[in-house]
Amino acid sequence: MRISMWVVATFLLAAVSLEAQARALTQNQQSVCRWGSDIAAGAQASKLSGVSLYGARKKLQVRKFPRPWMRMTALGITEQTYNSASRLKPAAVKQTYYEQCVRHELARR
């Protein structure tokens, strides 16, 4: 029972720490990390449901993006997701991507 409480406490501390780190980012940086995590989660969902990389890329090609750089970035995220052997659920991929994006943005400072 003690190990379970330790795991829960560790998880909560990590979540609070990540939230504090995310607040240190600008609104734009947070938005970009959220957007990228959504793309990664969508790509993972497509991969797990059997959609080919070609099919996933084709969906992104016809999608409208508000910024010019977003299409190529989304294609890159999707390709990396498909190349990964990961079978994680899309929600876990989304969380992992967001956490790593926040860490990356903070390290760039």
Results as ranks from 00 to 15, higher is better:
Ala20Met: 07
Leu75Thr: 03
Gln44Ser: 00
Glu79Gly: 03
Ala85Lys: 08
Gln61Gly: 02
Tyr97Cys: 00
Ala9Thr: 10
Val102Ala: 02
Lys58Tyr: 09
Ala22Cys: 07
Ser31Ala: 09
Lys59Gln: 11
Asn28Glu: 14
Ser37Ile: 07
Ala15Trp: 05
Gln95Cys: 12
Ile39His: 01
Ala56Arg: 02
Met1Leu: 13
Lys94Met: 13
Lys59Glu: 12
Lys58Trp: 05
Leu60Gly: 00
Gly76Gln: 14
Ser46Val: 01
Thr96Met: 10
Leu75Gly: 08
Trp69Ala: 11
Ala24Pro: 04
Arg23Ile: 06
Pro68Gln: 04
Ala56Trp: 03
Leu12Val: 03
Glu105Ile: 05
Arg87Met: 14
Arg63Trp: 10
Val102Arg: 00
Asn83Leu: 13
Met70Arg: 00
Val93Thr: 00
Ala22His: 05
Arg71Ala: 03
Gly76Val: 10
Gly36Glu: 13
Cys101Asn: 01
Val62Ile: 09
Arg67Tyr: 15
Val8Asn: 08
Thr78Gln: 06
Ala56Cys: 08
Lys47Gly: 01
Met72Thr: 12
Ala91Lys: 06
Val51Asp: 01
Leu48Met: 05
Ala92Lys: 09
Pro90Arg: 00
Trp69His: 04
Tyr54Ser: 08
Asn28His: 10
Ser31Ile: 07
Ala107Ile: 06
Ile39Cys: 00
Ala22Asn: 06
Met70Val: 01
Lys58Phe: 09
Arg34Met: 13
Pro90Val: 02
Thr81Lys: 03
Glu99Tyr: 08
Ser17Lys: 04
Gly50Ser: 03
Gln100Ala: 14
Val32Gln: 06
Met72Asn: 12
Ala15Leu: 12
Gln61Cys: 05
Ala40Phe: 02
Glu19Ala: 14
Arg87Asn: 14
Gly42Thr: 03
Ala45Gly: 13
Trp69Cys: 07
Ala43Glu: 05
Ser17Asp: 11
Glu105Val: 06
Asn83Ala: 07
Met1Trp: 10
Arg63Asp: 07
Ala41Glu: 04
Ala15Tyr: 11
Ser17Pro: 01
Lys89Ile: 09
Leu60His: 00
Ala85His: 05
Gln80Lys: 14
Gln80Ser: 15
Gln95Arg: 14
Leu88Pro: 01
Tyr54His: 04
Lys64Glu: 14
Glu105Leu: 09
Glu99Cys: 09
Met70Tyr: 01
Ala15Lys: 03
Arg63Tyr: 10
Ser49Asn: 05
Lys64Tyr: 14
Gln44Gly: 01
Val62Gly: 06
Tyr54Asp: 07
Ala22Pro: 07
Gln61Glu: 11
Ile3Met: 11
Ala15Gln: 04
Arg103Pro: 00
Leu18Thr: 00
Ala20Asp: 08
Ala9His: 03
Ala14Val: 10
Glu99His: 07
Arg57Cys: 08
Ala40Leu: 06
Met5Phe: 15
Gln100Asp: 15
Glu99Asn: 13
Ile77Phe: 05
Ser37Val: 01
Ser52His: 02
Asn28Thr: 11
Glu19Arg: 13
Gln80Gly: 12
Tyr98Phe: 14
Ser46Ala: 13
Arg63Thr: 07
Tyr98Ile: 02
Ile77Thr: 00
Glu19Thr: 09
Asn83Asp: 13
Thr96Asp: 09
Thr26Lys: 04
Arg87His: 15
Glu105Asn: 06
Ala45Asp: 15
Gly76Met: 15
Arg34Leu: 10
